[in-house]
């Protein structure tokens, strides 16, 4: 296996991981820049394919893209190098943040800060539903699934892992046109 290529893949995706402040939508142009423009590992068409793939299959787009590009370019070791690369910056930043917290623990201050930030956090989660729904709810069946899923998740809360309910709805959707 070409070690130089693996290192190049790794560094490339460290750049993507480091630059993607704000999640998937920010990561897309970064990925495109790294893998199409700078390194020509894959073409624009494949990037669109990765985006389409990511919007449906489980997992964040950065991980999906890293796995896809890494595998295409250098097989399984490449997929591993890219995936580890893309999460490395977040891991280092989060771990140093958690270490730093040891020095600044103040419960009431934290509560005060939280009250200020929580409306935005809730808004963020709300918008996640909107942005996912925009892509996957494409017909009447999708709307119906959404309407049925709200009580389903409400009544199974604390009893069933969501993944099983999601899979059940996946199968249910096969009944609709």
């Amino acid at each position: 296996m070409n070690l130089g290529l693996l290192i190049k893949l790794f560094i490339s995706f460290v750049t993507v991981g480091l630059g993607s402040w704000g999640g998937g939508t920010v990561a897309i142009p970064l990925i495109q820049h790294e893998v199409v423009e700078v390194n020509q590992w894959i073409n624009d068409e494949e990037v669109s394919r990765i985006i389409a793939l990511s919007q449906m299959t489980p997992g964040p787009i950065a991980i999906n893209a890293a796995t896809y590009v890494g595998y295409k370019v250098a097989g399984f070791p490449g997929a591993l190098a890219c995936t580890i690369g893309v999460i490395t910056p977040a891991a280092l930043i989060i771990f140093s943040f958690l270490m730093g917290l040891k020095r600044f623990g103040n419960r009431k201050l934290a509560t005060a800060l939280r009250s200020a930030v929580s409306p935005a956090v809730l808004g963020l989660i709300f918008l996640a539903a909107y942005s996912i729904g925009k892509v996957v709810i494409v017909n009447f069946g999708g709307i119906l699934i959404f309407i049925l899923s709200v009580p389903a998740f409400y009544y199974t809360r604390g009893k069933v892992a969501p993944v099983f309910v999601l899979i059940a709805f996946g199968f249910l959707s096969l009944l609709f046109s």
Binding site: M56, A129, I132, G133, I137, I147, V150, G170, S173
Partner: peptide, 26 residues
Amino acid sequence: KFLLGAGAAVTGLIAVSVWSIGRNII
């Protein structure tokens, strides 16, 4: 179809979650 259906249900899951977190936090 399966993936779209599961995705549509994800939006319902998030909606319930927004209600649950909001009730305790806001």
